[in-house]
């Protein structure tokens, strides 16, 4: 067995010790994970973004327009001092403003209009049968939206309709819980597969 697998296996087992209780070995591994992850993000961001998109084109190909994002990026570093923190608001304004401008048509069209139009289904299917599922979708959508509508008190008929929305929400949460269980178990199965086949060599 190579040293890489031994280290990965031991670290895996150390993390699992947390299931009994928190302990110094786990804390050490957790700190190492946090540190290594941050170092990793720093390196990838530096090499894949700042070098590729900024420094190389600017200093090697003399693309002078890139001085603008460089300046904005440097202004961002103003956050480190109380005296210069106001400067960092300008690059933040660029990002927030751009994001908001892009989001308006996207949220309206792709998230709202498209979703609403997909909810309107024919009452009868091509074979002549009644489209029960289509009714479920439209009733579910309207009642769930009613539940999230807080400008009117949830009383009387409106309250009952909003309560119907909670049943649909519970079905969604239940379904999501079922799939989340699947997901978490899959992750554990993957780690177990590593321990049994690569580390302990019990299975092939």
């Amino acid at each position: 067995m190579d040293i890489s697998t031994i280290i990965a296996g031991l670290l895996t087992l150390i993390i699992f010790t947390f299931l009994y209780k928190d302990n110094p070995f786990y804390k050490m591994a957790e700190s190492l994970l946090i540190g290594v992850s941050i170092g990793y993000v720093l390196v990838i961001t530096w090499t894949n973004t700042l070098m590729d998109m900024l420094f190389e084109p600017l200093f090697q190909n003399a693309e002078l327009t890139l001085l603008i994002p460089l300046l904005l990026g440097l202004l961002m570093l103003g956050r480190f001092s109380n005296k210069t923190v106001a400067l960092s608001r300008i690059p933040i304004a660029v990002m927030i403003g751009s994001g908001a401008g892009i989001a308006i048509p996207t949220m309206l069209y792709n998230r709202t209009i498209k979703q609403l139009s997909a909810s309107v289904m024919p009452l009868f299917l091509p074979d002549g049968s009644f489209n029960f599922s289509g009714i479920v979708v439209i009733v579910g959508l309207l009642s769930t939206l009613a539940y999230f509508y807080f400008s009117r008190e949830h009383k009387g008929k409106f309250g009952s309709f909003a309560k119907l929305g909670t049943f649909f929400l519970m079905i969604f949460f239940g379904t999501t819980f079922g799939y989340t269980v699947m997901s978490r178990m899959s992750t554990f199965i993957g780690r177990m597969e590593f321990l049994l086949s690569d580390f302990l060599k019990i299975t092939q």
Partner: peptide, 15 residues
């Protein structure tokens, strides 16, 4: 259907 439509309502609300 029922699960998807509740999620859709949440999506529209977020949108």
């Amino acid at each position: 259907y029922p699960s998807m439509t509740a999620r859709r309502a949440i999506l529209i609300g977020i949108g």
